[in-house]
């Protein structure tokens, strides 16, 4: 197997007296879709925020293609972070911008693309997501499902190579959930990005991800394939998958 694209080595993180990550080890490989599952409040979002650089670990290392992130020159860190995109749990769309401006924002603020090219890219993503004739509307005027798709369009408009999804289907009905999963799967296959999805959608997420990692008590207690989960003898894992207390 090739070297991991991103690797967590003994990462710990505390907030005050609350120890969230307690020596977490995890590997993420290039081009794969990895689902991170686990009970609420176990630090799944914290894990994602470490990758994007919103949170720094207290101890341990995060390796990018084998190199410790904190020792990389600032240009390399910036260039790595520019390959990343993040889809937030609550979408984090800007209320004061219309849908077009929301999706165009990362391009308009950071790139030297001419306006026509930005427009082209935005409308391509909007059409792919089925967001037709809503470019002048504001996020508050859209349904929850539409807002999710707008957030997904914004996450993908920069053509990232790594996309982090923080519970992308929260608050959606089963049909919309399935659509979002299909959308992620379809674009991951089409665009070939590396996807890390934090999700509670069990067992649906097993069909989207190639590998699954379960976070419990601040560590990864399982990392493997869907087949590995089904064959696992871990009581905790089995109980979680069945939705039972453990």
């Amino acid at each position: 197997m090739t070297a991991p694209l991103i690797q967590f080595v003994d990462v710990t993180k505390s907030f005050g007296t609350l120890n969230v990550l307690k020596g977490l080890n995890l590997s993420i490989f290039k081009g794969e879709t990895l689902a991170v599952i686990g009970k609420s409040g176990t630090g799944k979002s914290v894990l994602l925020k470490h990758i994007i650089g919103l949170i720094q670990p207290d101890s341990g290392k995060i390796l990018i293609e084998g190199h410790p992130l904190h020792r990389l020159p600032i240009e390399k860190i910036k260039s790595f972070q520019k390959q990343l995109s993040y889809m937030f749990q609550e979408n984090a769309l800007f209320d004061f911008l219309n849908i077009y401006d929301n999706i165009a924002l990362p391009l308009a603020e950071n790139s030297n693309f001419p306006k026509a090219q930005i427009k082209d890219k935005v409308f391509t993503r909007m059409n792919q997501m089925g967001l037709i004739d809503i470019e002048d509307k504001f996020p508050a005027q859209l349904s929850g499902g539409m807002r999710k798709r707008v957030a997904l369009a914004r996450a993908l408009v920069t053509d990232p190579t790594i996309v982090l999804f923080d519970e992308p289907t929260t608050g959606l009905d089963p049909v919309r959930k399935k659509n979002v999963h299909l959308m992620i799967q379809e674009y991951q296959e089409k665009l070939g990005f590396t996807a890390v999805i934090v999700s509670h959608d069990i067992p649906e997420i097993f069909n989207v991800a190639q590998r699954i990692a379960m976070l419990d008590e601040g560590i990864i207690m399982f990392e493997g394939t869907k087949k590995g989960i089904l064959e696992s003898h871990s009581n905790i894992l089995n109980a979680f998958v069945r939705g039972e207390n453990f």
């Binding site: 993040y86 609550e90 984090a92």
Partner: peptide, 25 residues
């Protein structure tokens, strides 16, 4: 109030992830 709501609804974090300086923005 507006910037406070942006903070608690992760919009400021979103700016950071898009490499947009939130203070400038």
């Amino acid at each position: 109030a507006e910037i406070g709501v942006m903070r608690i609804s992760e919009q400021i974090d979103a700016l950071n992830t898009m490499h947009i300086n939130p203070v400038r923005f």
